[in-house]
């Protein structure tokens, strides 16, 4: 009871817990846990044989947070920025710090642009995007999709119908734009 001084009694004693739970109390001493204390100064502990690491070659101008003093000595080289999404990303990194919502909102916008650009680009290759195989949606039929969703009182059922909307919206939008463009071309030729 919070209304009186004593802590409520537990249903099980220490001995009962130790008997029931394998390893109960093995890390009982709070001072003897791997993450205590939070900061433990020991630069020789970590296998590093450098004070500052050698620099990795920068093969293209690497986008970086303006909160950094300089480019970090090591960095990932996956997916260099390209296309319109790359322009938006570079602008965001160049202009806004991590403290600004505009930085993150621009990066999220660039992600959406990237998805559209990449899908369009894939149409020109031998491996165009395939929303059926890439969403893995066929596993609904092989891994108990319906029964998994209907079992119990899952609260996420209420927003499951939104998932296909999120996936399909860009495709529907692109299809609509393509249809309108084609219709306009046909009408001009006829007219």
């Amino acid at each position: 009871m919070p209304y009186t001084p004593d802590k409520p009694k537990l249903a099980e004693s220490t001995d009962e817990l130790r008997a029931r739970i394998p390893g109960w109390g093995a890390d009982l001493d709070p001072r003897d846990r791997p993450s205590v204390p939070k900061e433990r100064f020991d630069p020789g502990l970590n296998g590093a044989h450098w004070e500052f690491p050698q620099r990795q070659p920068e093969k293209w101008p690497r986008e970086m947070s303006i909160e950094h003093e300089f480019l970090t000595p090591v960095f990932g080289t996956s997916c260099p920025p390209r296309g319109l999404s790359g322009v938006i990303r570079r602008y965001s990194y160049r202009t806004y710090s991590e403290a600004r919502a505009a930085h993150w909102l621009l990066l999220l916008a660039a992600d959406r642009v990237d998805a559209v650009e990449s899908t369009l680009r894939s149409m020109l290759t031998r491996h165009p995007d395939n929303p059926v195989t890439e969403t893995g949606v066929l596993s609904e039929f092989t891994h108990h999709g319906l029964s998994s969703r209907l079992r119990g009182k899952r609260v996420d059922r209420v927003h499951h119908p939104l998932d296909p909307v999120v996936v399909a919206a860009p495709w529907v939008l692109a299809g609509g734009v393509a249809y309108l463009a084609a219709r306009r071309v046909v009408r001009r030729r006829r007219g």
Binding site: E39, D42, P43, N46, A48, W50, E67, H68, L71, T72
Partner: peptide, 25 residues
């Protein structure tokens, strides 16, 4: 991913390494 030698790694905060992520501090 961590360098083992920055201010944070030297104090055991490997997940907060300052030498490996140019995109964010």
């Amino acid at each position: 991913v961590y360098c083992g030698s920055c201010y944070f790694c030297a104090r055991g905060l490997f997940s907060n390494c300052h030498n490996v992520n140019p995109n964010a501090t």
